[in-house]
């Protein structure tokens, strides 16, 4: 009987979520925009084979000057269109890995602090507070300076500086849910803490976490752009932030060099924020018409 209840509850929940998502215009627009960027990132190698950092054209071609390089070229003769396509790959990869790191650390800390509470919870929240008090962007700069500005280190730095948001959210969810009837039931059936956390509480705490994840990815893209703008980017990897940073020198003679990567960043961050807003509307328990 228990298994029957456990099986029906998630199905009804996810069906109502899917219909709510499909009826939500901002979620649909956001998902479509994000899909376009993902396709561009996946096809970057096919559309623009070869290294996007190679000098291939006359320097400072304006968009439209040469049909072969329809978005123009920068001061070193690199193809801007190739840079944008390959940059999509770099920016998304860094942002997704940073968010994964942040969700893993924050989820673990938040789950432990929220489920167990007590001394352990206090200590964990203190650590959380330390990370929230240090200006996070400065922390990112310091961590990137410790390692070298490679893709992995940048993702790690952004992840390390942004996990407290996740930890606080997960802790709040776990604190409410650990008193719920179905958790008491699972406990009285003799489930282990691990099983209760992973199989009972986590699926029910997932909704706000999904919303936060999409916003965290958007924030990570903005942080990466800022970091690359300061010159702290992987020199072997095309990225929108790095394009912005190098195009800044030619702001007077070729403003398209800063405008184009900027527009690319806005496009993908807007997509993620639209998706996040749509998910929030669809998953917010206060607004959701719950089907029992």
């Amino acid at each position: 009987m228990t298994s029957a209840v456990l099986q029906t509850a998630p199905t009804g929940y996810s069906e109502s979520v899917w219909t709510a998502l499909l009826r939500n215009p901002s979620a649909l627009i956001g998902a479509t925009m994000l899909a376009l960027v993902l396709i561009l990132a996946l096809l970057a190698g096919t559309l623009y084979p070869g290294d996007p950092l190679d000098m291939v054209a006359m320097p400072m071609l304006w968009p439209g000057d040469d049909p072969g390089y329809f978005l123009g070229s920068d001061s070193l003769g690199r193809d801007v269109a190739a840079g944008i396509a390959h940059g999509a790959r770099g920016s998304l990869l860094i942002a997704a890995s940073a968010t994964l790191i942040s969700v893993l650390i924050g989820g673990l800390v938040g789950a432990l602090a929220g489920y167990h509470g007590g001394k352990l919870g206090d200590v964990l929240m203190r650590i959380c507070e330390v990370f929230q008090t240090v200006p996070s962007f400065l922390l990112v700069i310091v961590i990137v300076a410790i390692g070298n500005p490679t893709l992995g280190i940048i993702a790690l730095a952004i992840g390390i500086s942004s996990w407290p948001t996740v930890a606080r959210l997960v802790r709040a969810e776990f604190r409410t849910l650990r008193e719920a009837d179905f958790v008491t039931a699972a406990r009285s059936l003799g489930f282990s803490d691990r099983a209760i956390i992973l199989r009972e509480i986590l699926p029910n705490a997932l909704a706000p976490l999904v919303v936060t994840t999409s916003i965290l990815i958007a924030q990570a893209i903005l942080v990466e752009a800022g970091l690359a703008f300061l010159g702290m980017s992987d020199p072997n990897q095309a990225s929108w932030g790095a394009m912005l940073g190098s195009g800044r020198e030619q702001i007077a003679s070729g403003w398209y060099l800063t405008a184009l990567p900027g527009l690319a960043i806005i496009f993908v961050v807007l997509a993620l924020n639209l998706l996040g807003d749509g998910l929030n509307d669809a998953l917010n328990p206060r607004l959701r018409r719950y089907i029992p």
């Binding site: 752009a225 912005l244 800044r248 702001i251 900027g262 806005i266």
Partner: peptide
């Protein structure tokens, strides 16, 4: 959704 420094630029 817009980086502040891009608006600055």
């Amino acid at each position: 959704s817009t980086p502040g420094f891009w608006i600055g630029l």
